[in-house]
Write a protein that binds this DNA or RNA. Structure first.
Lengths: 115, 115
DNA sequence: GATATCTGTTACAAAAAGGATAGTACTTAC
DNA sequence: GTAAGTACTATCCTTTTTGTAACAGATATC
């Protein structure tokens, strides 16, 4: 009703949208979640996340552009690349944890009795 | 490396996906965020969220199906409908708050100096 | 040379999501 | 009966996203 709540509502809306712009979509948060267990190579990520190379490549580039993932080329026998979360990505910790927790609880609610 | 981390990683992945299945996409979280300031009518929501009636209708139905929003028809002069968050939707509080906070901080980081 | 691995990219196709514009149904107001 | 307000639905179309399959460059192995 009051101007105040309208303003704060608009702020919240914008913040949500900003977040979705960066980590929205089907894969970004899943990739970050998978990378939380340590650095991974390209194919390794592809297998673990169940994502095709084309999409994976695109998503990783976007995550790298936004400073959430770093890419390091290692000169091994066949060149390998290591993808790793950046320190900045840790600021997403609360988001990740909240979503993991909710998804887990919600699944339990659906499976066991509820209503 | 160990079986344990692979399992817990798979669990986390699944939880994230479950959450995205329910509140993923461009509008769900924005709508919930807007509704946090109180119940709203259809057109009111459409205006405040900046979403076209077609999409709004679809999103609200999905949110209602998942028990996050309730729909109440009031027999006023022109029939009005009130959309309101359910108690269950409060379980998403942590997710909402974490995302609002991150979006806000990230915007500040982008606007002011960083690199 | 043929084959395999790793990291991608390219081309093409399909599907999902989102948006624009009207129009329907009902009621009150003029 | 014309307009206006509420709550949608229908149609059509564009954009975005996702997927598949094949291929390319580099190196190493058989």
């Amino acid at each position: 009703m009051e101007t105040h709540s309208i303003e704060s509502c608009a702020k919240a809306k914008m913040a949500i949208r900003d977040t979705l712009d960066i980590v929205g979509g089907k894969w970004k948060l899943v990739l970050i979640s998978v990378l939380r267990s340590g650095k991974k190579g390209f194919n390794e990520l592809s297998r673990e996340a169940g994502i095709s190379p084309r999409i994976l490549s695109k998503e990783l580039q976007e995550l790298e552009m936004n400073g959430l993932v770093s890419r390091k080329v290692c000169d091994t026998k066949p060149v390998t690349v290591q993808y790793e979360l950046t320190p900045y990505s840790e600021t997403l910790g609360d988001v990740l944890i909240a979503m993991e927790k909710w998804g887990f609880q919600h699944r339990n609610k659906i499976m066991h009795g509820m209503e």
